[in-house]
Structure formats: structure tokens, C-alpha cells
């Protein structure tokens, strides 16, 4: 009896080992382990054997069964791995063929730069304020300490609607509008469109500015320097040097023009920076006490800083654009690049 088992085992192991395909294995499984398989038959015979024999015989039969099952499983795994491998080998794509794009649009480069800047100031704790494009002479000039017959008015070439209304020449009127309504402490930025009667490769009658205003007790010029240096390094890179240079704006005093190391030559001097190594980026200063007077703030108690910058100029420097008019022409071949 045991010999019979051994014979079946040897035959089975040989068959399975030599199997050429998954179906050979399936056949072998049926032949030996199936309902009418050889081992199954022997198993059925167990019942008629005497107790002692049955135990020995049963044990041998079980061992054989486990051996065969084990071999079947491992051979099956081999074949299936082989099949997968064959499938993989036959499936090679040309990965250089173009992908199927879900074509997204793009934000206008001015919006991209503006959003980046707004983000920096929002994280610092500033809030966004807005004002109208069509402004009164009072908000655009008078309240900003720019009297009517003062030569400083020439700093802004103005587009007028009538004697009192104009297209705002800067975002600074928003400062006045906010201060009229709110008491300090105050931390706002005012992004928006501004208008000047100018047009050439670096000047557009319509462009964008970002204005900032911080008013509280004991705000100093040092704070202005700290805030703007941090901001400019965020925009132009941590390694860039920033320089503050005395300037003049009727609504701030002291006033400072802020320069960043040239983006092209890193300060060595080139055509872009007119050999100075520096690029003028923004205007700033401590809010002039006269401006506080216009909005009813006590300049002995409060101080503040204000700043403003042209977004197109910064975008031109960041992206290497040499003609401001490209921004408003909206050629898709231009817009796609950002």
C-alpha cells in the first residue's frame, strides 16, 4: 500500500515538475487531488483498513498530499509570474508620444505677481482695502499733502474727468479713505489699478500698484526698513541686497526710495541698472504729519509708514520683459509663458 502511495507521489511530482503550462498543472491537480483523483481514491480506501494500518497509511497519504499541493502551488505561482512577465514584455509604450492634456488656462502675469505680493503681506498681518478708480481731487492730491499749485503735482501726469474728478494716479487715496473710517492700529494694503497720462515702453496709461500703510504707536523708520527688506527678499530672493535712499513724496517724511540689487548683473553694473548695480523698486516713507492732520489722527501719539510700488515694473524685472505694452496686448503666445 505504501509503495502504491510512493509510486503515485513520484509520478505526480515528476508530472508537475515537468508541466509545460498552467493547464498541465490543472490536469495534474485533477488527476491526483480531484474528486476522482488517485490520492482521493486511496483516501476513500482508508475506511476499510484496520485501525493500526489506517494510522500509518493515513499519515503517509497526508504527507504525500501536502507535498503535491505545495509543488502545485509553487509551480502555479511560477507560471503566473511568467505570464505576467510575458505580458509586460509585450507592452512597451512610446513614452515620447504626447500626453492628453486637460488644458488649463493661466493667470495673467500681473495677477500672478500681485497675488504673490498680497500673500506676503497678508501673512504679516495686513488686510486688503479698496478704493475707487475714479477719485476726487481731494483724495488723490489735497489730503495727501499735494496742494493745488505746488510743483510736486507734476510728479503725476493726470487723466481728468472734470475739474474735481480724475482717474487716481496712485493707490495712495485708499490710505486716506481707510484712515477717515478707522482708528489706529491699522495695517492695510491696497492693490489696484492706477492711471497716468504716459505711454512708452516702460509707461502705460493703465497700470497696477500695491500700497501699504501701517499706523500705530511708535512705528519707526527702522520698522519700515525691516518690513520692506523682508518683503523684497521674499520677492527677489534671500541673497539680494536692499538699499534705502532718501527721496521726496509729499505724503511721507522722511521718504525713501527702495532699491534692490540688479536682477541681471547682481550689482556688478549693466544696461538694465544703468551701471548703478541697483534697481529702483518702490517708494516709501513715514506718514507725513500733515496727512494725519487731514484724517484727524494725532501725530504726536501715532506714527506710521506707507509704501507703494508698481506691479508691472516688478513683473518686468522678474520675468525679463522689456515692453510694458505686452501686458495689455494679451497675445496668447505671451500669456502662455507664465
Amino acid at each position: 500500500m505504501v509503495e502504491r502511495i510512493r509510486a503515485i507521489e513520484n509520478e505526480a511530482l515528476e508530472n508537475i515538475t515537468n508541466a509545460k503550462s498552467l493547464s498541465d498543472i490543472d490536469d495534474a491537480q485533477i488527476r491526483y487531488l480531484g474528486k476522482k483523483g488517485l490520492l482521493t481514491e486511496l483516501m476513500r480506501n482508508l475506511k476499510i483498513l484496520p485501525e493500526e494500518e489506517r494510522r500509518n497509511f493515513g499519515k503517509a497519504l497526508n504527507e504525500t498530499k501536502i507535498k503535491i499541493e505545495g509543488l502545485i502551488a509553487s509551480r502555479k505561482a511560477q507560471f503566473s509570474a511568467q505570464l505576467t512577465q510575458n505580458k509586460i514584455n509585450s507592452e512597451v509604450l512610446d513614452i515620447t508620444l504626447p500626453g492628453k492634456f486637460i488644458k488649463r488656462g493661466k493667470l495673467h502675469p500681473i495677477t500672478q505677481v500681485m497675488d504673490e505680493m498680497i500673500g506676503i503681506f497678508i501673512r504679516m498681518g495686513f488686510s486688503i482695502a479698496e478704493g475707487p478708480d475714479i477719485e476726487t481731487e481731494y483724495y488723490n492730491f489735497e489730503a495727501l499733502n499735494i496742494p493745488k499749485y505746488h510743483p510736486s503735482r507734476d510728479m503725476w501726469s493726470t487723466l481728468w474727468i472734470n475739474n474735481e474728478l480724475l482717474l487716481r494716479t496712485h493707490t495712495s487715496p485708499v490710505q486716506i479713505r481707510v484712515m477717515e473710517k478707522q482708528k489706529p492700529p491699522l495695517a492695510i494694503i491696497a492693490p489696484g489699478r492706477v492711471y497716468r497720462r504716459d505711454s512708452d515702453v516702460t509707461h502705460s496709461p493703465v497700470f497696477h500698484q500695491l500700497e501699504g500703510l501701517l499706523v500705530d504707536k511708535k512705528i519707526t523708520f527702522g520698522d519700515l526698513k525691516g518690513t520692506l527688506s523682508y518683503f523684497l527678499r521674499q520677492v527677489f530672493g534671500k541673497e539680494k541686497k536692499v538699499r534705502f535712499r532718501p527721496s521726496y513724496f509729499p505724503f511721507t517724511e522722511p521718504s525713501a526710495e527702495v532699491d534692490v540689487e540688479c536682477v541681471l548683473c547682481n550689482g556688478a553694473g549693466c544696461r538694465l541698472c544703468k551701471n548703478t548695480g541697483w534697481l529702483e523698486i518702490l517708494g516709501s516713507g513715514m506718514v507725513d504729519p500733515n496727512v494725519f492732520k487731514f484724517v484727524g489722527y494725532n501725530s504726536e501719539k501715532f506714527s506710521g509708514y506707507a509704501f507703494g510700488m508698481g506691479i508691472e515694473r516688478i513683473a518686468m524685472l522678474k520675468f525679463g520683459i522689456d515692453d510694458i505694452r505686452l501686458f495689455f496686448e494679451n497675445d496668447l503666445r505671451f500669456l502662455e509663458q507664465f
Binding site: M124, G222, D223, G226, F244, P246, A256
Partner: peptide, 22 residues
């Protein structure tokens, strides 16, 4: 301006103003 803007140290103001939504 004569003392020199570059000699004035940079400081970071503590911003105490309430923020508002836009």
C-alpha cells in the same frame, strides 16, 4: 539723510491691527 539711512537698523514691527476679510 545725512546720518545715513543705511545706519538705521532694520526692525520688525509687531502688527496689532485687527485683520478683516476682503
Amino acid at each position: 539723510r545725512i546720518y545715513g539711512f543705511d545706519k538705521i537698523n532694520e526692525t520688525m514691527p509687531e502688527i496689532k491691527a485687527k485683520t478683516f476679510e476682503s
